[in-house]
Design a protein around this nucleic acid. Structure first.
Lengths: 106, 106
DNA sequence: TTGACATGCAGGTATTTACCTGCATATTAT
DNA sequence: ATAATATGCAGGTAAATACCTGCATGTCAA
């Protein structure tokens, strides 16, 4: 997994919207997705290409159509390898800050 | 929580590195953080400002120093409100794709 | 007080990015 | 075959971004 590509891909609201749309109905065509986006089809394609490069979306060609499917695995990996690290130390990290805010004179 | 700011903030490798550094040792000064970064202090400041705007980092001034603390709460919220959504449907989403890959003729 | 140190602030620039338009190709339906 | 449909490909542009340098301010220690 290329963590940087995944984070970069998630860093744009349009691409998160695309993932949301695919979550509502998986396997949509480019045209279907564009109907909900308010931008040129070619722009949407570029966003989808980035999602695909990050392995967050997989595509299948069916005739002249291109179907898009979410791949939730990279999200899971990002969570496991990155978010949980902070999650685990959550309380102690907050404790550090609280301690500092309460004053240094002790 | 401003989800967009959080995702944007996480979308840069330098800023993720800063969070990693703070996770190793919370409450570091700007100078300490810069020693591990290979860029001008002013550039690091800009990254830290974005992390602070996303509420991922909180700061406390102590004398002429500025201490930086991770705030793990927004990460937790991003996970709760966004990642878990896909997590929950993970298996069914993968099933959709597998089904499509196995051929259309049935 | 004066010098060293930690950080703040104000631009400037090169790269990346997010959008667009125009045209080409491939597939389906009549 | 021909027209309509779905997508691919090739630039082009304006805005955002990630750096930088130079200088100002505030704090500590001798």
């Amino acid at each position: 997994m290329d963590a940087d590509k995944v984070f970069k891909a998630l860093g744009d609201p349009t691409r998160r919207r695309l993932l949301d749309l695919l979550c509502e109905q998986n396997g949509q065509t480019l045209g279907q997705l564009c109907e909900n986006l308010d931008m040129a089809r070619q722009s949407a394609t570029q966003h989808l290409d980035l999602l695909e490069a990050a392995n967050l979306v997989s595509t299948v060609k069916r005739g002249r159509e291109k179907l898009h499917f979410i791949n939730p695995v990279p999200l899971h990996e990002v969570y496991e390898r990155w978010v949980r690290k902070f999650e685990r130390e959550r309380l102690s990290l907050l404790h550090d800050l609280k301690q500092e805010l309460e004053g240094d004179d002790q």
